[in-house]
């Protein structure tokens, strides 16, 4: 799966300035990539454009064959079904074994008979992620989908995603510099721009941590500083 963005610009209706303008960017999967940036730089907007949820003001997005899915953290499941019934109803035929594995791996087994409203925020995040992971997709864009999950569990989940889906492409949007530094193949950074319209996307090579692969804290720390420095850089074209 690949994504190519050419001269992409977007502004919200009625807003005085663009969220970003003239962005040229590409991703070539498979792999686990991250999109990082400070609040309000337009990460979610860019993700929604790539997934086709909103149209750009100008510019073009082209992608390879295969389904692109976009998921975000505040999604909810219909309240009239149990978690189990919802997951079974929405899992494509042939992915049942994967579903069972994810339910057990993400510690959701004992909660299957509950309604979504009865879950904690972290559990809600995990159920939502599971139902996307069992779909047939080529690129999954996850927008802060593990925002409420505790750190050790989050690391386990990210490690397992990389192990279970080596042939898929992920674009992981997060505010957490440590986890994007650790797990990403490449971290794409939307920097702040003085006029509010980012034009560049910087690239930082991530540490691409896999399950069972230990990276020392000093290396992670160095990468985190590099990501944060890049995110604070001026983002407009010279």
């Amino acid at each position: 799966m690949y994504i190519i963005c050419k001269e992409l610009s977007y502004s919200y209706p009625g807003a005085p300035s663009n969220v970003f303008s003239g962005v040229n960017w590409s991703i070539k999967g498979p792999g686990f990539f991250s999109l990082f940036g400070l609040s309000g730089v337009g990460k979610s907007t860019l993700a929604r454009i790539i997934s086709g949820n909103i149209a750009p003001k100008s510019g073009k997005v082209t992608s390879g064959n295969g389904k692109i899915l976009y998921s975000y953290d505040s999604e909810r499941l219909p309240g009239w079904l149990s978690i189990e019934r919802h997951l079974k109803k929405t899992t494509p035929a042939g992915n049942s074994a994967l579903l069972e594995g994810l339910i057990s791996g993400y510690g959701m087994g004992r909660l299957l008979r509950h309604r979504f409203s009865a879950l904690s925020m972290g559990q809600k995040n995990r159920v939502n992620l599971i139902r996307y992971l069992v779909q047939d997709f080529e690129l999954l864009i996850t927008d802060e989908v593990l925002a409420n999950v505790d750190e050790p569990t989050r690391y386990e989940i990210l490690g397992s995603i990389k192990r279970l889906f080596p042939q898929k492409t992920f674009l992981y949007i997060s505010h957490n510099a440590i986890e994007v530094a650790r797990f990403s193949k490449t971290v794409y950074i939307l920097p702040q721009a003085s006029d509010g319209a980012t034009a560049l996307i910087h690239e930082v090579t991530g540490l691409d941590q896999h399950e069972g692969y230990v990276i020392d804290d000093r290396t992670v720390q160095g990468k985190v500083y590099e990501i944060l420095r890049t995110a604070s850089m001026e983002g407009t074209m010279p």
Partner: peptide
């Protein structure tokens, strides 16, 4: 949106489901 998004993304949405979600909410 928070509920309908998944069904729209995955192509599972139909008018009965859409109305069911809105009535339930």
């Amino acid at each position: 949106d928070d509920i309908e998004h998944f069904f729209n993304e995955t192509g599972m949405m139909n008018w009965r489901l859409r109305i069911g979600i809105r009535v339930f909410e």
